[in-house]
């Protein structure tokens, strides 16, 4: 069993295709959708986590690519810009999974563990310095 995070960008002419259904039915993957923007006739975005056999994940990704879907593999749709962070720690209580956390109690440095991020976007609403950005 493997787990893979990715966010997908699909072109406007592909937004009507039921990709998630196909990933589940044809590739036996468990799909956990974090966020999606799917509007008919416009470019679409989907941020998700896939669970399944590595081989099935690879075949699923290959299928999506054939359909013209752009895969940002291993990424979440959220960007934490380390250089912009002032390490005030304000975000740490608003982040429900501890993705944003204090990594060193003595120096109070903040770090971001992308694997824990569920893209609730609470950090975007709460960061006074606009450090977190969403990709879509």
């Amino acid at each position: 069993m493997a787990t893979k995070k990715a966010y997908l960008h699909f072109p406007a002419d592909q937004t009507s295709n039921p990709f998630v259904c196909e990933l589940v039915r044809d590739f036996h993957l468990v799909v956990n959708i974090f966020r999606a923007v799917v509007t008919p006739g416009k470019d679409g975005y989907l941020s998700l986590e896939l669970k399944g056999a590595q081989d099935d994940i690879d075949r699923g990704f290959a299928y999506l690519r054939e359909q013209g879907v752009e895969i940002h593999s291993g990424d979440t749709g959220l960007m934490w810009r380390k250089d912009e962070c002032t390490h005030c720690t304000n975000c740490t209580v608003h982040c429900p999974t501890g993705a944003l956390h204090i990594t060193d109690r003595a120096t109070r440095e903040v770090a971001f563990d992308e694997s824990l991020c569920i893209e609730c976007l609470a950090c975007i609403a709460n960061c006074p310095f606009g450090v977190c950005r969403q990709m879509f």
């Binding site: 005030c88 304000n90 120096t107 109070r108 903040v110 006074p128």
Partner: peptide, 13 residues
């Protein structure tokens, strides 16, 4: 109650 700060100890150091 969970606590966080608005002031950066890291930057102050």
């Amino acid at each position: 109650v969970p606590v966080s700060a608005m002031s950066s100890y890291h930057r102050a150091l």
